[in-house]
């Protein structure tokens, strides 16, 4: 069995099962969290609370005026990173093929040049974010192993993907194997660290917005 066959076969299966099981674990933990009883009467009804949740989902994309200057670098770099990653993930033809295989959904892919450019921007923004994290005194203090590990498991697929697109080092099969294995590492780590925000971010914002709206706070 070659490395590519292992990567596309058993390694992929194991990593997906760990990811699915891990997501179940995290969701059960979140849903069963002890919540404080709400003793105060709600300020708004059901519809206003749902609107508050939706509002919180959208409003958090734009930083508050008060913090805009202090967070501008992080916000811009993070936006470049997330948009670039989305272009790569949902625009790259091989990725669309895999999504189609899993879900049956498909759409036209982007030209390879655009995907490679987006990969380059993603990679550059990730490096800049890491440098900022390691040099900013507060960020450095707040950072944990989870932050660095999450960064690494996202960085590796992007990096190997760029190598694969150019076939610069090693053969296509070797690079494809490394790329798939790095994605599998990401899948394994996804439910257990901060990368889980990729699945929970909108639900978390929405829940917070609903709570705020219930209390009558601005969302």
């Amino acid at each position: 069995m070659t490395m590519l066959e292992i990567a596309r076969g058993p390694a992929m299966q194991v990593s997906i099962l760990i990811m699915v099981g891990g997501i179940g674990w995290r969701l059960a933990g979140i849903l069963l969290l002890r919540r404080r009883p709400q003793r105060a009467a709600p300020r708004h009804g059901f519809v206003r609370r749902i609107c508050g949740g939706l509002s919180a989902i959208l409003s958090r994309f734009i930083p508050r005026r008060t913090f805009r200057r202090g967070t501008a670098v992080s916000v811009v770099l993070s936006a470049v990173f997330h948009l670039g990653l989305a272009v790569v993930l949902f625009g790259g033809a091989p990725h669309i093929l895999l999504i189609r295989q899993i879900t049956g959904l498909t759409w036209p892919g982007l030209p390879k040049g655009i995907v490679v450019m987006a990969s380059g921007l993603t990679l550059a923004s990730m490096i800049a974010l890491l440098v900022r994290r390691m040099t900013h005194p507060v960020l450095r203090l707040l950072s944990t192993v989870d932050d660095y590990l999450s960064w690494l498991v996202v960085f590796l697929p992007v990096f190997t993907g760029i190598l694969l697109s150019g076939e610069t080092i090693g053969g296509y099969a070797t690079l494809l194997s490394l790329h798939i294995l790095s994605v599998e590492l990401l899948l394994v780590w996804l439910p257990f660290g901060k990368l889980m925000h990729g699945l929970l971010v909108f639900a978390g914002r929405g829940a917070m917005g609903v709570t705020f709206a219930r209390k009558g706070a601005a969302t």
Binding site: G21, G24, A28, P94
Partner: peptide, 24 residues
Amino acid sequence: PLAGATLPGWRNAAIAASVGLVGG
């Protein structure tokens, strides 16, 4: 396609999800 993979199947995924939910 080379980009494709051998997936674990919905049954195995459901078992994994159940194990995760119960454990969590």
